[in-house]
Design a protein around this nucleic acid. Sequence first.
RNA 1: GGCGCCGUAGCCAAGUGGUAAGGCAGAGGUCUGCAAAACCUCCAUCCCCGGUUCGAAUCCGGGCGGCGCCUCCA
Length: 471
Amino acid sequence: MRLYNTLSRQEEEFAPQRDGVVRMYACGLTVYARGHIGNFRTFLAVDLLRRTLRHVAGFEVHHVTNFTDVDDKTIAESQKAGVPLREYTTRFIEAFREDAASLGLEAPEDTPRATDQENLVAMADMIAALESRGHTYRSEGSIYFKISTLPQYGQLARLDHAGMISGARVDSDKYEKEDARDFVLWKATKPDEPTWDCGVGPGRPGWHIECSAMALRLLGPAPIDIHCGGVDLIFPHHENEIAQAEGATGHQFARFWFHVEHLLMDDGEKMSKSLGNVFTIRDILDQGYRASALRFLLISVHYRKQLRYSWATLQQAEEAVKRLYDCVLRLERVKDGTGADGWEARLETARADFRDKLQADVNVPGALGAVFELLREANAAVDAGTLSRAQAEATLTFFADCDKVLGVIALRRQEESAPPIPQDELDALMAARVQARRMRNFAEADRLRAELDARGVILEDSPTGTIWKRK
RNA sequence: GGCGCCGUAGCCAAGUGGUAAGGCAGAGGUCUGCAAAACCUCCAUCCCCGGUUCGAAUCCGGGCGGCGCCUCCA
């Protein structure tokens, strides 16, 4: 398995350090609003990574994704809504779970919240360790990380701080700091803000401390294998996570850094809550598009390339998913044939191709190519009537195995499981049409087809019978 | 101002030294009561200009264009 590592800016051979278990941490959502599709592009990329590690590379995975449920925005928004912070953020955690399920994200092994007691304690412990190692100072009730005490600071982002001048706003923090680059570990709180005291004095967590502390609490000891997140987190968030974890433990924090490029809107701008140009999963489903198509679109561009979202490409994804699912349906209905020559070997080639692509830095678009190449040949074999029942089954197994990683067919199957009209009514109408066709009463047969079409059901006739699909 | 990424057919997108995967759309054909689906055929020389090489979309240099980070952000 090869993975690009932001730390070295190179692709490297990857294997977990201990016991064949990959210990990975992915920065999650700040839960003051529903996540948008840009957020989910990243979560989907991480999902494909975890599925590849499990189902292709054969490792076990211990994957942690956090919810940031305390920061300036969550506090401000909950106050605006007049709802206690915990209750307010819980709503968006539930919304996230709903969206994640609709996109078919595998559940991480742990999804800690920053404000859970054991996590706050872990943060306080880490800050205490940093204090005893001389990496901090206190000022006006807050505790800061003193960057000048950590010579290796900046290795991930590779920023030239000496050259950080005009054009960049450096010091925007409202709090007192000795050096503009220093960052807050534990924030003094205002009277109306939630406060915790877990050993380092009253206050609330700074933005970065939760990830270092929770990652090591759940996945430690350092180093963990992979740390994931969007590219915008490289600096300052991940750089500061490294400073905290390494300052506190004296060991490397994470061996691999996996960063997902941004999703851009049609106009070429980054989608982000602060820019206000956001679409949620729900917005898109409400427009009548399927989650399976959205999933396909979001995984069909390599994770290290920017993905430009448009309705046209979503429609293209919809057509591709349809083609994939239709092939599966055909294979399921294949009657026993004489046997296609060399089909087993062909499946093996496709399988190897699929795996090779994914093992090369999770090249999902390349892997999709392998699937669709095989798909065309499978359709041709079905047309020719050569495929034996066993070969059809083997082909279905191939698709199912690919889908353990891609997760698109499973979603589509779920979407298609119930017809848009009552099943018994559908059955009756379809039976009536079979009867009409048998009597060569095509006018009646076409009338029934039109009636169903108007109600969202498409019929497809074939030598092996008629099947229905959602429109 | 500094750092970095990207530019492949009408659209989306792999490939990163050996002569352009795949998807969508389009054209023609086969099959078909109709309608679909499916199959077959066709559809690019890789932003521009130089250079290295037997050979470059792939390496180097210079342009042009797009985007990101340097500040909350997936």
